[in-house]
Amino acid sequence: MDKGYVENGFIVDLSNARKTSEIIYELSRILDLPEAKDKKVCLKLGEINLNQSELVSVKALIETMDSELEFITTNSDMTKAAAETLGIKISALENKVDAPEFNEDGTVEENLNPELESELDKIFGEGDFEERYPEEDEEKEINEEVRSDIQISTDEFDNFDETYDEIKKHMKETEKLPTLYVQRTLRSGQSLKSDGNIVIIGDVNPGAEIIAKGDITVWGVLGGIAHAGSDGNNYSKIRALKLHAIQLRIGDIFARRPDTVNIPYVQKTDSFVPEEARVSRKHIVIYKLHEA
């Protein structure tokens, strides 16, 4: 029962559900996610037989969760008939991009959707990094250091054609923001919010949260949740001696720690190479800053 994405909403695949209670549970779980708000929902019902009253209650559930049922797909004649009498659209799926599938051991399966693969190529491929980051020898390093999880976002942000000057301009704007300077470790359950930049001398432990309208710099291990550019500035950056965050958000783009990275804690005796996270083509990418 995975979750896919369409242009203005997403597809909820319920074709594996055996009971109506499973459908209700899975649906409410997915619709409860923050990114599901005010989006259209497409249900993939597969072989499931739903009668008219069951379909009505599913639709009502979606509406009570502030979403809208766009269309359903089904192979069952019974469900098809029920949907027709209720006036629910039945459609074939289009524009679908599968969310990456993870095996139990956390590795990405090979049979990726071609569209996703092209998205991956865009990140890992040679691309036009050179235009914006002219250091030729650094470029290969960058591609190797990509650690962020792939998340297909639906926003309109696009920085394909932006120039170096534009990045500079945004940096200048961030510089003008006030900066909150904190010299202690943020522990689980503590959260820090700022209308400007945040600089923390100390760690941000798992369970802690920092939200800044500008950039975030952590002189220590960042292990919690960090959100830079909280008012939607996708040019914000997050830097730390060790980026080990459970979740990173920059502007309206987010990335989570990949399942393959499952180190419960970071040994501080390790020698750190400082890291910086920024948005590159709708994805958060972590770059290692080179030792001088």
Binding site: R187, G189, P206, G207
Partner: peptide, 8 residues
Amino acid sequence: RDADRIIG
């Protein structure tokens, strides 16, 4: 983790 929270 819980100790971290408590210390906070």
